[in-house]
Simulated assay, not measured.
Amino acid sequence: MQTAKQEVEELLKQLPDDSTHEDIQYHLYVLEKIRKGQDDINQGRTSGHSEAKERLKKWLGH
C-alpha cells in the first residue's frame, strides 16, 4: 500500500506540466473520494441496488 506522499508523487508525474493548482487540487479530491469509497466497500458499508433506488426516489420526487 502506498503512502499519501507516494500517491501524490505518482499523481504529479501523470499530470501535464502546465497543470494549475486548481487542477492538482481537483485530482487530489477525486483520489481521496475513490480511496474513501474503497474503504467503505472493504468495511462492508455499501447499499444494494434497491436501497439506492429508494434513496434516489426521495431526491427526485418520485
Score class of each variant (00 low, 15 high):
Met1Thr: 12
Met1Lys: 13
Gln2His: 04
Thr3Cys: 12
Thr3Arg: 08
Thr3Met: 11
Ala4Tyr: 00
Ala4Met: 03
Lys5Ala: 11
Lys5Trp: 03
Gln6Leu: 03
Glu10Asn: 12
Glu10Tyr: 05
Leu11Trp: 03
Leu12Ala: 13
Leu12Lys: 12
Lys13Pro: 02
Gln14Met: 13
Gln14Asp: 15
Gln14Cys: 09
Leu15Cys: 04
Leu15Ile: 01
Leu15Val: 02
Leu15Ser: 08
Pro16Arg: 07
Pro16Gly: 09
Asp18Ile: 00
Asp18Arg: 01
Asp18Ser: 06
Ser19Pro: 08
Ser19Ala: 15
Ser19Leu: 04
His21Lys: 05
His21Thr: 08
Glu22Gly: 03
Glu22Thr: 05
Asp23His: 01
Asp23Ala: 00
Ile24Trp: 00
Ile24Ser: 06
Ile24Arg: 01
Gln25Lys: 05
Tyr26Ala: 06
Tyr26Thr: 10
Tyr29Leu: 10
Tyr29Asn: 12
Val30Glu: 13
Leu31Thr: 01
Leu31Ile: 01
Lys33Tyr: 01
Lys33His: 09
Lys33Ile: 02
Lys33Ser: 09
Lys33Gln: 14
Ile34Gln: 15
Ile34Cys: 14
Arg35Met: 04
Arg35Thr: 04
Arg35Asp: 11
Lys36Pro: 00
Gly37Glu: 10
Gly37Leu: 08
Gly37Asp: 10
Gly37Phe: 03
Gln38Asp: 08
Gln38Thr: 05
Gln38Ile: 11
Gln38Ala: 10
Asp39Cys: 03
Asp39Val: 08
Asp39Glu: 14
Asp40Trp: 02
Asn42Thr: 13
Gly44Ala: 03
Thr46Glu: 05
Ser47Ile: 05
Gly48Asn: 11
His49Phe: 15
His49Ala: 13
His49Asn: 07
His49Cys: 09
His49Val: 15
Ser50Met: 06
Ser50His: 03
Ser50Gly: 00
Glu51Ile: 06
Glu51Cys: 01
Glu51Ala: 09
Ala52Met: 05
Ala52Glu: 01
Ala52Ile: 10
Ala52Ser: 01
Glu54Ala: 11
Glu54Met: 08
Arg55Ile: 11
Lys58Gly: 04
Lys58Arg: 10
Lys58Ile: 05
Trp59Cys: 09
Trp59Tyr: 14
Trp59Ser: 11
Leu60Lys: 15
Leu60Ile: 10
Gly61Pro: 07
His62Glu: 14
His62Ala: 09
His62Thr: 04
